[in-house]
Amino acid sequence: MAIEVRVPTVLRKHTGGERKVTGSGATLRELVDDLETRNAGLRGALVGDDGSLHRFINVYVNDEDVRYLGGINTPLDDGDSVSILPAVAGG
């Protein structure tokens, strides 16, 4: 079960410079734990000790912000695409 994850420039220091990594998991939490085994430091950049997402990071499953799905417990399916983006404004 492979899920592709897009990583923003600011976090590529944890992925050896790669803009895309793959991992597996039935939930976003499992995916992040799996990614951490090969990309040390990524988990800490995304979630705090209590498991909640950092305020200035947005994680999307199939383009939808997980804060409006199930947060860190958002269920994942094979073939889902996950993106990570820093919070930026417009206006």
Binding site: Y60, E64, Y68, P86, A87, A89
Partner: peptide, 23 residues
Amino acid sequence: LRNLDEGFVPPVFDERVLDGRIK
């Protein structure tokens, strides 16, 4: 951004009003 601390969520934005956010 050079680091995540440069991220910005506008103080006027009340995220609770949303039912979904899609990029």
